[in-house]
């Protein structure tokens, strides 16, 4: 057992990066599900996007995907930037209207 695991640990390859991304994904999921603060949820979403990016770039290095994976990661980053700008504008609006940033207290459809 030890003989098998040690060389596997010594040379980080595709699976190592995938495991890191899986951990980040579940942590992001945890943040999205368990926190009430909108901004905290947004941070969880950023973490999930990043874990997806790690996957894409790891694939672009170790498989025949080549640079395409990096390209898609680049677009993910662009979209994340746009998302953050709009989401935070919405959060500020929400705060000025409801005076709270807790998601479960914002339950009326009419402003």
């Amino acid at each position: 057992m030890e003989l098998m695991i040690t060389p596997w640990l010594a040379e980080p390859g595709l699976v190592h990066f995938l495991i890191v991304s899986a951990l980040l994904l579940s942590l992001g999921l945890m943040a999205v599900l368990s926190r009430r603060n909108v901004i905290m949820v947004l941070m969880g979403v950023e973490l999930i996007l990043n874990s997806a990016n790690i996957n894409l770039i790891a694939f672009s290095r170790y498989t025949s995907l080549s640079l395409e994976g990096q390209m898609i990661a680049l677009f993910v980053i662009i979209i994340a930037a746009a998302e953050a700008a709009v989401a935070l504008a919405i959060v500020l609006n929400m705060y000025s209207r409801f005076n709270t940033v807790h998601l479960d207290e914002i339950d009326s459809l009419k402003g």
Partner: peptide, 13 residues
């Protein structure tokens, strides 16, 4: 910070 649904969230994660 306030946390909700701690059990289902951690289970799911």
């Amino acid at each position: 910070a306030v946390t909700v649904n701690m059990l289902p969230a951690s289970l799911l994660a």
